[in-house]
Nucleic acid binder design. Structure first.
Lengths: 349, 349
DNA sequence: CTGAAAGCGCTTACAG
DNA sequence: CTGAAAGCGCTTACAG
């Protein structure tokens, strides 16, 4: 007997198991389809007695409305997509959570995925979300060409970029003040007497990396310090490369006395390397991280507010979904310098 | 003219903007609906010439298949739901990412949300995902009664629990060896000469917290050490409570000489408190965390593999979706003691 | 207060 | 090789 059921399942394509539908409920309650719909959706105009019968049938059958079908008819899916770089990166945790909370407040679910910093995967994921007809999209770009989203946006998919701007299209974007934050962080090192300052950042094609490098250059120029080529290293943030870069800057006759790191992953690796040196090297890192205050010395950072980035982007998205007019905007959030010791070390000659 | 378009949008309920459908493509290409479907899905039996005409129409109209409609007809949504405690918690980042990778390998999207440790919110979220007809569900329970999922599971929603077992229902579950890990960690402290050892953990209603406390008790009992009431503190993991608990254990005539902490959030707070004391207090924490090796002393931990938890759970889920038979299983993953210094400090008398 | 018909955008099952 | 009809499970627009 269970076997027969199984085969029946397969025969109808195992369609959602064997779930009862509104039609089943209507039949059992002896009412029309529309009446069931009214009860399920809390619409008015049903006598208490009818409603009771419908509710009993729902209970008895274990009916749950198929939102997937509802969505098809209504035209809005009450879900938004989030494309980020890596769900496992601690920077994106609070950002995702903030987007989720805003979505929740608007009764929407969140579908998300990681691009793994691969532009092709970003596109694949973003378009899959569009095919699901998410109402809107929050994207942390991996690539720098987003023209593939143009038809989708034109077709009505609200889209907001966060952390990095879109490439090749005009769209709302929420950014941290990467340039200003880096400039302030480097100026802080200069104010503490450093002149030979290294910069270790992410790949230059990533917008945030380029902006932070620009901030570094600006601070140095403002102080009238010429920058040596060997003081700048941009590339992948894997520990091996960052370690090599750090060691090179600390070698030679005129080693750097301070390092500015371009993001949290770089910072962490540089801390490990510096721990192996006897001479103190000053450090300011972009991005705050847990326990930065408990290390010795505490790590001075330029902090950005990941949750605020996510919240601002999601708010903007729902404003657009609610029909907010106007051309795409660029929203820039300030950063904050947090001094904890490592950035206040004097230069070791 | 744009205004007219706008009004038209509203009139039809702003249905996915104004997206072209297969019907539009068919009309433009001068073929039947089914032929468009064949081309879009790469099914055989279309002459090259017909295919070309269809592709041109698709291109010209900017058509993208509505997977939401497809799903309704096919019965499987190619998406799975993940209910976790907090997207922003660093422990769940790698776990989510692992689930995502497995889903991706199976061509499924991931819909996820945070329960915020609130049983009601967990239920609301899990049922919303069921209403969307996700094919399966990975749940990190907040509550301890999951009977509300019984009708869903019976209706065919594959469900796997991770990190904590389900309550009131029989379901697949993937756990760390919380009992064994905690017992080993406490035994490690005992082996280093400690007898007065404190335990600070999460709320006792949370399964992992209870299991880890059980491990603590077992280790103490194995060593023949009677446990004083004041040595155990379970409750919310907010810094204020944990700080108070730590301070109380360190006060009085017979203070603890070592602390075992029940999870990463507790550990981090206890480290902050211990940093304020002159006398050294040994510490072993459940859960590894970034930079644990760079603190002074390095923090000895009982590490669990969050990514492996997620991967194992997702693998199990897709096995079930592929028809794997058998009764629900309990999979337990080992933990690993990582010594870094804090757990090897001798007792200060 | 209630319900039958049409339709959302696809796929399935079938016939030519 | 191609396509018309029916249907997935709901909601919409309308009529009684």
């Amino acid at each position: 007997m269970p076997d027969t059921t199984r085969r029946a399942d397969r025969a109808n394509g195992s369609r959602y198991g064997n779930r009862p539908t509104m039609k089943d409920v209507a039949a059992r309650a002896g009412v029309g389809l529309k009446t069931v719909s009214r009860v399920v959706n809390g619409e008015p105009g049903v006598t208490p007695d009818t409603e009771r019968r419908v509710r009993e049938a729902i209970e008895a059958l274990g009916f749950r409305r198929n939102d997937s079908a509802r969505v098809l008819r209504k035209g809005r899916t009450a879900s938004i997509g989030l494309v980020l770089e890596d769900l496992a990166d601690p920077f994106y945790g609070p950002l995702s959570r903030a987007v989720e909370e805003v979505a929740r407040a608007h009764g929407a679910l969140l579908i998300n995925g990681s691009s793994a910093e691969d532009p092709e995967r970003e596109q694949e994921l973003a378009l899959a979300l569009c095919a699901r007809r998410v109402d809107g999209l929050v994207v942390i770009p991996a690539g720098d060409d987003h023209r593939y989203l143009e038809p989708e946006i034109r077709a009505g998919v609200a889209t907001v970029f966060v952390d990095r701007p879109a490439g090749g299209i005009d769209a709302d974007v929420v950014l941290s003040d990467n340039f200003g934050g880096a400039r302030d962080g480097v100026a802080h090192l200069i104010a503490h007497g450093h002149r030979r300052i290294g910069f270790i950042g992410d790949m230059p094609r990533i917008h945030t990396a380029a902006e932070r490098l620009r901030g570094y250059r600006a601070a140095m120029e403002d102080a009238g310090i010429p920058v040596a080529e060997g003081w700048m290293s941009l590339g992948a943030t894997d520990p091996e490369r960052v370690r090599r870069a750090t060691e090179e800057m600390l070698a030679g006759p005129d080693p750097v006395t301070a390092v500015f790191t371009g993001n949290n992953r770089v910072t962490v690796t540089v801390i490990r390397v510096l721990a192996e040196y006897d001479r103190p090297v000053a450090l300011v890192g972009f991005d705050d991280f847990e326990l930065a205050d408990l290390l010795q010395p505490g790590v001075t950072v330029v902090a950005q507010d990941a949750a605020a980035l996510g919240r601002t982007a999601a708010d903007r998205l729902f404003q657009r979904l609610d029909g907010a007019p106007g051309t795409p905007e660029r929203l820039e959030l300030p950063t904050r310098l947090i001094t904890r010791g490592s950035g206040e070390l004097p230069p070791a000659h």
